[in-house]
Design a binder for these strands. Structure first.
Lengths: 185, 185
DNA sequence: AAATTTATGTCAGTCATGTTGACATATCTG
DNA sequence: CAGATATGTCAACATGACTGACATAAATTT
């Protein structure tokens, strides 16, 4: 086994004095943002998890019903692009949401092979409830910030997203988002 | 291809009246931030996923070796607090990382039941590599922002995190983070 | 010293959610 | 009509969570 090359073992409490890669390429790594993102996202999705459990659903169901609710008429193929999962994975949760009446399908007008997806009132209620919890957290976090700072957050998140293969939903989001960004700066 | 209909016509059964958030309690929901967080985090963790696949590891391994590397001497119990998983789940990935020489254990001085965890040079190399990819993305996102805006991002992420039961690692992060926020980074 | 608690490890089974590959069906397009 | 496309589905499998039960060593309490 390799020897321990860091500092001496911190007695009892794990104190993070030594940073990995002190002088190497990692000297400038944004450990702070990396870890803040981990904790922030963990707690962000945690809000919804408790409610979902009471419904017998998981995060997969949340993602599906959320995007269907927000972008009514989404095709199955669009949803696959957004979620980046296989149709088999989507099929399982989508079937449950259909069976339990959170989502309905409608054949496309021009192309009747397509199944356009819509949230029912029941589905919308769930989405709104979950989004409400997450919005509460976001508002709490934003209320300590000025308007310019809030815009900075939006700009940052937008810039963190890959642009090379934007699906339809993402395109829509990024468009409206850049409109906002141009208002400020 | 079908486009996304925001106010889609839905005729059938239990159909959604309109987009969520028209006039109800969801009127003020931060759909923008909710969805930006989803896409940003999806692409953020995606960076590491490709590399991990080549090592035969998953995200679980990444989280473990990352925090062990960053906070040398972390106890198993600390790690359980941070990751919020059961010891059985941790045990599986930790065993692999130990067997393959990415992490070593050392009995605690004061309490020899404790297994203090340390990343080896091999483990640190992996962590630095993965953090490098994620740092690249973060720097790309931050470089379009001013110093004040970058601080706003840090403030926002910090404020998104639950404060009621901060584990040792999180305490450290939140402390240093507020220090940074006051510095001129 | 003995009993109890604590920190950790491990076995066995289950569940949720992802994967690949193959194939069926309806529908559109050339 | 022939082929491509959109979707659905079956079967098998991997990962990473979970619960419950139990083992061991070391610390702590009685």
């Amino acid at each position: 086994m390799t020897d321990i090359n860091f500092k001496s073992p911190v007695s009892g409490e794990g104190v993070p004095s030594a940073r990995p890669g002190d002088a190497s390429s990692a000297a400038s790594a944004r450990w702070d943002i990396i870890e803040l993102l981990f904790f922030a996202y963990r707690d962000f999705v945690g809000d919804a998890d408790h409610v979902l459990e009471a419904f017998g659903f998981g995060r997969a169901h949340h993602r599906v019903v959320h995007f269907v609710c927000r972008y009514p008429g989404l095709k199955v193929a669009d949803l696959l692009d957004v979620l980046r999962i296989t149709k088999q994975s989507l099929g399982r949760v989508l079937k449950q949401l259909l069976d339990e009446g959170y989502i309905v399908q409608k054949a496309g007008d021009s192309d009747r092979r397509q199944r356009l997806l819509f949230a029912t009132a029941k589905g919308e209620a769930l989405v709104v409830k979950l989004a409400g919890l997450q919005t509460d957290r976001i508002e709490r976090a934003l209320c300590g910030l000025g308007a310019d700072e809030a815009k900075a957050v939006s700009k940052f998140l937008r810039a963190m997203i890959d642009r090379d293969d934007p699906d339809k939903v993402l395109q829509t989001i990024l468009q409206s988002d850049s409109a906002i960004a141009k208002d400020v700066t």
